[in-house]
Amino acid sequence: MSASVHALADRHPGIAGVEVANITKSFGPDDARVTVLNGVSLTIRKGEFVSLIGPSGCGKSTLLKVVAGLSSADGGTVTINGKSVKEAARRKAIGLVPQSPALLPWRTILDNVSLPIRINPEANAGRTLRDPREILTSFGLGKAMDRYPAQLSGGMQQRAAIARAFVFDPDILLMDEPFSALDEMNRDQQRMGLLDFWQSNQKSVLFVTHSVPEAIMLSDRIVLMAAHPGRVAEIIDVDLPRPRNEAMYASDAFRDLEGYVRSALRKVMEVAHV
């Protein structure tokens, strides 16, 4: 176990933010069903950043949808702070950031981020809600909140989508390759922005990515998945100190870990193609 995970366990002894236990999921007709997830189990502690990485078709996004309550599992259970996914969703304890920002083009950035609060206000009674203006400012969008999505770059739009997920101060943030559509320079900028924000908020995060450097820079642990069927091949501790910044990329420890993760990823991909 990494030093960072030890610290998290010390702060929250015996408490898991998310427990995924023996999840199975398949698609297709009975005579031709394809198993996408096969006995997947993992834990995300409160305040822990966990990334899912693996070859295409290993079920990363499917698992994220099961945890979000957008897809039902055939078997197994998911609990969030000891509650069912349905109950956690009702309490708006789950924040979801999809691959596409999904911003309404006819609404300003502030209106887009405020929209979850305005929908069904009675259900929000008694909830801790965060000020959309404050969140946008913390994400570096204070001067852009009155603009429309088309007036912002792709990276700024994605940042707004992440800010929107924080309005309800969720217990768990689920992120499905949120930077995949960005060029490498913009992607790295948004990645570091997310890292800075997370390091000051310490939310539990489950993050899907295809980028090994991204997974290492952001995570406390990396869950390496194998395909056909989708399953956990290895869970890798990221023993790098926090807080982290761009200088970490050049460190020997980062390069050594990147080499290890890439080697492990090659192995699961070779098995998938045998």
Score class of each variant (00 low, 15 high):
176 D>A: 09
128 T>A: 07
212 V>K: 07
110 L>I: 13
150 A>N: 13
181 A>I: 01
177 E>K: 05
202 Q>F: 05
208 V>Y: 00
200 S>I: 11
108 T>I: 04
167 V>L: 03
185 M>P: 01
212 V>N: 08
183 D>R: 08
146 D>S: 08
221 R>D: 08
171 D>A: 12
196 D>V: 14
222 I>G: 11
110 L>H: 15
189 Q>V: 03
126 G>E: 05
153 S>L: 11
133 R>T: 04
121 P>T: 11
168 F>L: 05
155 G>A: 11
107 R>W: 03
207 F>P: 13
176 D>V: 09
169 D>E: 15
118 R>T: 01
109 I>C: 04
187 R>A: 12
151 Q>T: 01
166 F>R: 01
175 M>L: 08
149 P>H: 02
138 S>L: 07
142 G>H: 07
177 E>R: 08
193 G>N: 10
182 L>R: 09
179 F>P: 04
145 M>W: 07
135 I>D: 00
224 L>E: 10
172 I>M: 07
137 T>I: 09
204 S>F: 05
200 S>L: 05
204 S>V: 00
130 R>I: 03
144 A>E: 06
141 L>E: 00
120 N>M: 13
222 I>K: 14
154 G>Q: 06
139 F>G: 00
197 F>D: 05
134 E>A: 14
118 R>E: 10
185 M>L: 13
206 L>C: 09
190 Q>D: 07
189 Q>M: 15
203 K>G: 12
168 F>K: 08
157 Q>I: 04
209 T>I: 09
168 F>C: 04
145 M>L: 15
224 L>W: 06
223 V>E: 08
128 T>S: 14
127 R>H: 10
173 L>N: 01
175 M>I: 04
115 L>P: 14
214 E>R: 06
171 D>M: 02
146 D>P: 10
119 I>L: 10
191 R>I: 06
221 R>E: 04
196 D>Q: 13
194 L>A: 03
165 A>I: 03
107 R>E: 09
119 I>H: 02
160 A>W: 00
158 Q>E: 01
202 Q>R: 15
113 V>Q: 01
224 L>H: 10
159 R>L: 07
185 M>H: 03
214 E>P: 02
153 S>N: 06
192 M>S: 02
218 L>D: 03
187 R>D: 03
162 I>K: 03
167 V>G: 04
152 L>Q: 02
157 Q>M: 10
126 G>N: 12
106 W>R: 12
106 W>A: 15
180 S>H: 09
148 Y>H: 15
110 L>P: 15
133 R>C: 02
166 F>Y: 14
203 K>W: 09
186 N>T: 10
117 I>W: 03
139 F>H: 00
150 A>S: 06
163 A>Q: 05
134 E>I: 00
118 R>Q: 12
193 G>K: 12
174 L>W: 13
108 T>F: 12
152 L>A: 04
168 F>H: 15
144 A>P: 12
115 L>C: 09
179 F>V: 02
117 I>P: 12
161 A>V: 03
176 D>T: 13
162 I>W: 02
168 F>W: 09
159 R>M: 10
191 R>Y: 13
152 L>G: 11
157 Q>C: 14
121 P>D: 15
196 D>Y: 02
224 L>S: 07
145 M>Q: 11
126 G>T: 14
154 G>M: 03
164 R>N: 08
222 I>M: 15
152 L>F: 01
106 W>F: 09
207 F>V: 06
